[in-house]
Design a protein around this nucleic acid. Structure first.
Length: 758
DNA sequence: TTAGGGCTATTG
DNA sequence: CAATAGCCCTAA
């Protein structure tokens, strides 16, 4: 290697030290020296690149380390806190988001150095990169240097390699010599928003245009397992469809009505819908044509159809009814979706609900028997025909009494029905009619469990169980005090999800779209006041609103009477219950990317916890009872200390639900590594177990920035161990994040626990 | 075992 | 037919 380059490299090290807007931690500096050493050692190597691949790592590490409050090195942590508190330094644009790979982080962190001092200083890392790689190199092609790959985000063609980009799972995490950025294992969810990025960095956070992150979306249908490639138009079906279409046309069914749906045929929804057809291979071969027809007709499933106006009523034709009955004979009562999806059967724009309604209309007794098979102990073994009446009576006691069942499947509508009706039930199919279409055997029953409404007791028990155990549905179910053993765990979950979606959401779980919308509406109503200015802009469903509320809640918890950084606190209807159930926001759920609302352009974000906390803590060192270090300067306030939530018993400012206690569990997203058995006995018993890595991390983190002056009344060992995954399921950085965020709730939890124990 | 989301029964 | 809520399926 040329001496010129060597000197340049050595100069770079000085550049790093002198130009970085922050002091490098000892670790980084150590690496820096290593880095220097590497250079000199590699100068004698045969590598053509003028730069050792690991050269930029020290810079990137230190940058990242500063970005990352969870840095293992306490020194860095303190530095971070101090830097964050300095008014002049702008915090890093964003913590790593899920969509960013390690390489991306590496790339971004270099510009990040410049962005952290956007106006005051010229970019710091640019000279470094330029010097390291040489200007000629930047302008020339790829030199083969890994450095170039890492540093020259724009110039290295390999940068856009999807393969590299996809290297997300921290394969290098374990390597202590290579300081990789912690990639929070944020689950990328469907509705996840991309982080809001300052314009300066916008392009850097975007994947290159030619990045092949995802395979191209094609119209190709997903291979349907269990559904062999369908033969071309099944004759019967086609005929059916044709007749119906003809009928439709003749009956002045507006053509455009059907047409617009056709294009939707091949949509993900369809393929999703079709999947259940497999059904143990029962599904017959599908015809693309008929499938398409069925799809187009079935397309208006509830979701898609909501957008459309109202559907025009269509009378069921004989063909359709026959097809339906055949389908029921094949798949059984209740498997409407399968019938609908089966290419063997074609329906004209019917939905599964339509099928069900139709069957209920034309074969009411069969339908009832399906519903209440238990009384007679017989499933639908009864044969169609005369025996139906008696069977039906035994099968469905009181209902049968109100309806002459024989009239349903016996020939003729002449049997006097008790129920009033509009006209002759010509649409009803008797056994003969069934036999005429080739249905001899009785319909098979649906294996679906009988629907049972939740009683008040069950609801109350569920609520108690949820407050007690959290979203551990099996535990709730098996709790003898709750008497919910007759319910499936998922039933309990679903009940909570339906009945108290806000609780469900507050626990950090997704709620169904419907509930989301409802909640959104509610929140819009509630937040319609002047204090919710941004709600109009926010089209995100309720999850995001919740998270904002969560943060508002957090702020309120920290200092309910102070507006930390003048942010407009959203009027949060859910505050009370939020505190009750979920005192701490989960930064890693769906839309909660805490990078999404960075306070750029004067916007104050309630999402950036650490920053707000730091800012606030600087101005309010004694705002709460965490005995902010008497000796430590405020620039070293431990964020965990700052985040400490006052115990409910010691403050009246904390919103608090009078009906329920804070849960004795951790929010679900934060309990990923927790034992599923949260029984208090077990937990207390396990408190004697040796501390896990998580605990050590928590302890060290808690005391790192604030010194050892008892800044935090850490929970006792037993409390710390409560709910912990002692098997070490938490690993790596995730534990850091978990602890970072759960510690306050642990404290709240502990406070609650103490209250309860008292 | 749970979360997420789809399916279906019920109701009006 | 839409809305609702319980049930079911499946990936993780």
């Amino acid at each position: 290697m040329e001496p010129r380059i060597q000197s340049l490299l050595l100069d770079d090290n000085f550049t790093i030290d002198n130009q970085l807007p922050f002091p490098l931690g000892p670790f980084a500096q150590h690496h820096q020296s290593q880095h220097t050493h590497n250079h000199s050692s590699h100068q004698h190597g045969s590598r053509p690149s003028p730069v050792e691949p690991s050269a930029p790592r020290p810079a990137s590490f230190s940058l990242h380390d500063i970005y990352n409050p969870n840095a293992k090195d306490s020194h860095h942590h303190a530095t971070f806190a101090g830097r964050q508190l300095s008014a002049s330094s702008r915090p890093p644009p964003s913590p790593p988001s899920t969509s960013l790979t390690h390489e991306q982080h590496t790339q971004h962190n270099h510009p990040g150095a410049s962005s952290s001092q956007p106006a005051a200083r010229p970019p710091k890392s640019v000279p470094l990169a330029e010097v390291l790689n040489g200007h000629e190199q930047t302008s020339s092609g790829f030199s083969g240097s890994v450095n170039e790959l890492l540093d020259n985000s724009g110039s290295a063609p390999g940068n856009n390699s999807p393969k590299k980009r996809r290297k997300v799972d921290g394969s290098g995490m374990g390597d202590q010599n290579i300081f990789t950025l912690p990639k929070p294992t944020l689950p990328v969810k469907k509705g996840a928003r991309r982080p809001r990025i300052p314009p300066l960095l916008q392009g850097l956070h975007q994947p290159p245009p030619n990045a092949g992150l995802f395979p191209p979306i094609t119209g190709e249908r997903v291979a349907r397992e269990g559904c062999p490639p369908p033969p071309p138009p099944p004759p019967a079906t086609t005929k059916n469809a044709m007749t119906q279409q003809q009928k439709q046309k003749s009956t002045s069914t507006p053509a455009p009505r059907v047409e617009p749906r056709a294009p939707e045929k091949v949509t993900p929804i369809e393929s999703k819908r079709l999947s259940p057809v497999q059904d143990g291979g029962k599904a017959p071969p599908k015809s693309t044509a008929s499938d398409a027809a069925a799809a187009s007709s079935a397309k208006p499933s509830a979701k898609t159809q909501k957008a459309e106006p109202s559907k025009r009523r269509k009378k069921w034709t004989e063909e359709e009814t026959t097809t339906l009955l055949k389908g029921v004979a094949k798949f059984g009562i209740g498997n409407w979706k399968k019938i609908l999806d089966c290419p063997e059967f074609s329906f004209d724009g019917r939905t599964a609900v339509d099928l069900k309604d139709r069957f209920r209309t034309c074969c009411p007794d069969e339908y009832r028997k399906m519903k209440k098979p238990k009384a007679g102990g017989t499933e639908l073994d009864a044969t169609a025909g005369a025996s139906e009446a008696s069977t039906a009576e035994t099968a469905s006691g009181k209902q049968v009494s109100s309806l002459v069942t024989s009239n349903i499947l016996l020939p003729g509508p002449s049997n006097g029905p008790v129920r009033k009706r509009r006209g002759p039930k010509v649409h009803r199919k008797d056994s003969q009619a069934l036999a005429s279409i080739g249905i001899e055997a009785p319909f098979t029953k649906s294996t679906r469990r009988e629907r049972r409404e939740f009683t008040e007791q069950e609801d109350a028990a569920l609520l108690r169980g949820f407050e007690k155990h959290g979203p551990h549905w099996h535990v709730i179910r098996n709790d003898p005090d709750l008497e919910l053993t007759h319910r499936h765990p998922t039933d309990l979950r679903d009940r909570l999800r339906n009945r108290w979606p806000e609780k469900y959401a507050e626990a950090g779980y997704k709620i169904k779209l419907k509930e989301k919308n409802n909640k959104q509406e509610n929140q819009d109503d509630a937040g319609a006041g002047p204090s919710a200015p941004e709600s109009s802009e926010d089209k995100e469903p309720s999850k995001r609103m919740f998270l904002q509320d969560d943060n508002a809640m957090l702020t309120a918890n920290v200092a309910p009477h102070v507006n930390p950084i003048g942010m407009t606190r959203k009027k949060a209807p859910g505050l009370k219950s939020l505190l009750t159930n979920y005192p701490f926001p989960d930064p890693f759920t769906e839309d909660d990317d805490f990078t999404s609302d960075l306070p750029f352009e004067g916007e104050c974000s309630p999402v950036i916890l650490s920053r707000d906390i730091f800012s606030y803590a600087q101005g309010q060192p004694n705002a709460f009872d965490l005995s902010v270090n008497s000796h430590a300067d405020h620039s070293h306030i431990n964020p965990l200390d700052t985040l400490k939530i006052p115990k409910t018993s010691s403050t009246t400012q904390q919103p608090h639900s009078s009906t329920s206690l804070p849960p004795l569990w951790l929010p679900a997203p934060l309990t990923a590594g927790l034992s599923s058995n949260l029984g208090s006995n077990m937990l207390l018993a396990s408190s004697s177990a040796p501390s896990s890595r998580c605990i050590a991390t928590a302890a060290s983190t808690s005391t790192a920035g604030g010194g050892n002056s008892g800044t935090v009344s850490l929970p006792g060992p037993a409390d710390l161990l409560m709910g912990l995954d002692l098997e070490g399921k938490n690993d790596g950085h995730s534990s850091n994040f978990i602890w970072e965020d759960t510690t306050p709730s642990r404290q709240l939890f502990d406070g609650r626990l103490n209250e309860e124990e008292a």
